[in-house]
Amino acid sequence: MTSKIMPLAEAVGRFVKDGHTIAMEGFTHLIPFAAGHEVIRQARRELTLVRMTPDIIYDQLIGMGCAKSLVFSWGGNPGVGSIHRFRDAIENGWPRPLAIQEHSHADMAGRYQAGASGLPFSVLRGYVGSDLPKHNPNIRSITCPFTGERLAATPAINPDVTVIHAQKADREGNVLIIGIVGVQKEAVLAAKAAIVTVEEIVDRLEAPMNSCVLPHWVLAAVCEVPYGAHPSYAHGYYGRDNAFCKAWDPISRDRDTFLAWMKEHVLGTKDHAGFLKSAGITPIGRDAIHG
């Protein structure tokens, strides 16, 4: 059997193609920043980006012109405010117009579940009274065949590629996720191919019973990328870099400042270790947050 363990650049090169629907998940925890940067380095274009909570990494992908459309349920820089490249794309069409398909969290989670389950659609008791269905033709309704109740229905999400970050994998490529697991299992199982970056590859996972484990045979690639979730956090490894999240606001507010920053630190480096060094980032240890 061919090993699933490979460098991140190889995984992105092999599996992420122009025009693909790409989901990068991680609910404010374990956000796959290093993988997002690699997609930017490899200059993928015409992507449909899917993510419940587009934040800084999608701001960067959108601002660098990788995306033609965005499927999401909440877009912002948590605790800081707006994401300016996302807003500039929607409000002014820069660097290119961005088509949006907007949902609620409950619905996005359900759409991934339907995708993972091989079902065509998801059903939920949602959007009652909301204007969202008027602006998103994918939000429709269905009548329950048993009770007659009208419920919201939306199509399954089946990304070409889902990308997530996790704490660790073993040498076979089995992955363990600890802490806030978000929608990652569903997003991985819904995808045609899944790339997982991990903090470390270990001899034995030592996963507690019932923990969130993704077996190697549902994954396309597993890549060891320490600090690959920075500036988000990896529970048990390092804390959220709130100073970076705040610093992102002025960097991203101005188009030229943004482009210069991305050219220097992302396009100008060959991998994540190079990026961290170039941007002068020292991830914050666990004790700084939980000590």
């Binding site: 609910f27 404010t28 925890h29 419940m52 948590p78 605790g79 969290h105 409950a106 989670a109 359900g110 991934y112 579940q113 939920l124 802490g179 806030i180 697991v181 978000g182 929608v183 299992k185 569903e186 969130c212 956090y233 529970h235 804390g239 959220r240 709130n242 947050i289 939980h290």
Partner: peptide, 26 residues
């Protein structure tokens, strides 16, 4: 600071997935 800070998980009774929180609990 964010809805998914480690602080919330660390001292919670339990941590479930996002689909579960919206389906079973809400």
């Amino acid at each position: 600071l964010s809805i998914g800070d480690g602080e919330l998980a660390e001292y919670a009774d339990t941590v479930v997935s996002v689909p579960e929180i919206f389906r079973y609990w809400l």
